[in-house]
C-alpha cells in the first residue's frame, strides 16, 4: 500500500464480471447446489428472477478483495459487517470500492465503508471493513 490512509480517501476500485464458468466454480467450491445460481429455467420461470443470481457471498468476497488488494502485505482485515441488499445477475459488470472513514495512527486500525454497486449505480452490498496496518517500527 503506497499512501498512508487519510479519512475520506477512496481506495482503487475494481470491476467484476462474473460469467457462468466462474459462477459454477464458485458454487462448486462452496458445495452450494442452489438452482438460482446455475439453472436458468428454474431461476427465471419458477423464482421469477431476470437471470442467474450471483451468489451473495461472492459479492461479500469482492468487498474483502478490494480492501485486501489495497492493503497488500501492509496489513490484514480484522473484521467485516455487510449485507446483501440487491441481487446481481450473471453477465452484469459490478464495481467494488471503498472509502476510509477512520484511521488511528497509534494502533494502525483503519475502517473503511465499502460497496459493490451495479451499472445503474445501485449499491448491492454495503459494508464496513476494519483492518490493522503493520506499523513501521
Amino acid at each position: 500500500m503506497s499512501p498512508a490512509p487519510t479519512v475520506g480517501m477512496a481506495i482503487p476500485q475494481r470491476q467484476h464480471y462474473c460469467d457462468e464458468v466462474q459462477q459454477m466454480l464458485y458454487n462448486a467450491s462452496l458445495w452450494n447446489g442452489h438452482r438460482i445460481h446455475f439453472d436458468m429455467p428454474y431461476a427465471t420461470e419458477v423464482e421469477g428472477y431476470p437471470g442467474l443470481v450471483v451468489a451473495g457471498p461472492l459479492m461479500g468476497d469482492w468487498l474483502h478483495q478490494v480492501v485486501d488488494e489495497w492493503l497488500g502485505d501492509a496489513g490484514m482485515i480484522t473484521g467485516i459487517e455487510y449485507s446483501n441488499r440487491i441481487a446481481a445477475y450473471v453477465g452484469e459488470t459490478v464495481t467494488s470500492g471503498g472509502t476510509v472513514t477512520a484511521y488511528d495512527e497509534a494502533t494502525g486500525e483503519v475502517t473503511l465503508e465499502v460497496f459493490v454497486k451495479n451499472e445503474r449505480d445501485e449499491v448491492l452490498t454495503p459494508g464496513v471493513i476494519t483492518a490493522t496496518l503493520t506499523l513501521a517500527s
Binding site: Q22, L25, A28, S29, D61, H64, Q65, D68
Partner: peptide, 22 residues
C-alpha cells in the same frame, strides 16, 4: 480452488500459502 473461483489476484492466496478472508 477458492482463490481461483473468487477471481482473487494475490499470489499468496492463488498459491495456497494462506487462506483469503471468507
Amino acid at each position: 480452488k477458492y482463490a481461483v473461483a473468487t477471481n482473487n489476484r494475490q499470489a499468496k492466496y492463488l498459491d495456497g500459502d494462506v487462506a483469503p478472508p471468507l
